[in-house]
Amino acid sequence: MKTAILAAGFALAALPAVAQDGVVLVQSTTSTQNSGLYDHILPIAEEALGLDIRVVAVGTGQALQNAERCDGDMLIVHARDAEIAFVEAGFGTERRDLMYNDFVIVGPESDPAGVAGTGDVSAALAAIAGAGAPFASRGDDSGTHRKELNLWDGVADVAAASGTWYRELGSGMGATLNAAVGMGAYTLTDRATWLAFENRGDLVILSQGDERLFNQYGVIPVNPAHCPNVNAEGATAFADWLVSDAGQQAIADYSLGGEQLFFPNAE
């Protein structure tokens, strides 16, 4: 049976295969794909570099794991501590700041917890917890989930509240927003995904602007010393381009409905 499957696989070798020269596989967070950023910058980069750049958008946690297993040539993610740990463990060559945007707390317009206009994110979350208003958490070890857990730290014991007002969905940002619309819940989302999201229902941005809501994206080529199969040359070329003036300009140029979604800040 296995042989037959393998035979079928080989019979399909005519189909595009990976590990070809000129292909760079990016393990990525979802916000950059869902917001449409890649649709804007990849054609420009491919044109400039002569590369075939492919994106697997799975969320920061899974992207880091997939890259550690050598199933990708580079990472575009947003969980700074985890990224530094990834490089220190020898899985990546170097981590560079790429761009930023910010997180916002969205919730039903009726705002049962009364967080509208609360600039201090801790106060906003405390109000939600205090009111026992439903809060939809990603619960998927993504960059956004890690950020959210940091913000709850010292505000409320969400682990204890899980299953009551605090609902861990174990889903991507889009699915979590869809669920939040469905159950009239508050949630934390990055602004880019929010702006590109079309099914907002009666959800609106209720709290924003706290400096702790800063959302930094980084880029890391996978280390060929750890993963000999990777296209290190292509990955480095794309990473270099992203932090170059041309790449940073391409990121800055991307907007949706007149709003810029990502702010380049490479050194």
Partner: peptide, 19 residues
């Protein structure tokens, strides 16, 4: 997966893998 037993085939993230 590249770290898996059949990683050398380089089929992950191709239509062949889906098949």
């Amino acid at each position: 997966s590249a770290s898996g037993p059949l990683g050398v085939l380089g089929l992950l993230y191709t239509p062949a893998a889906m098949i």
